[in-house]
Amino acid sequence: MAKKILVCDDDQPVAEMIKVMLENNGYDVRLQFSGKAIQKRIKEYLPDLILLDIWMSGINGEEVAKILKRDEQIKHIPIIILSALHQNEIKAIIKRVEVEGFLSKPFNMADLLKMVVKYTS
């Protein structure tokens, strides 16, 4: 069975591009364009990995990650931060929340796939 990946990014073109990339490589991908109701969505879908953007309209990805990592039902699911922020800023965020990894945009498909493989196997 294909591994399930939830991509949470308010920038639709990016989210769709990631979807294509991952589907082409045999993953099952669902998109989420905001942080709202994300907990409910995860509990329904039960992904193997979450790709999470930081700057989203209405909600901060950092907050979303904190909420998810506090939820007993969800917190085992690995989260990879994807962000177009400067590396320094991303690294500062990583220090504050316990997520599994990060990729800064624009990223190489190979790097993304490597990371996805790492956290879904």
């Binding site: 920038d11 990016v14 591009m17 082409n24 177009a84 945009k105 990223f107 498909m109 190979a110």
Partner: peptide, 12 residues
């Protein structure tokens, strides 16, 4: 952000 999309699709 747009660079990420363009780069991604190019790689795809």
């Amino acid at each position: 952000t747009p660079l990420a999309t363009v780069k991604g699709y190019t790689q795809i």
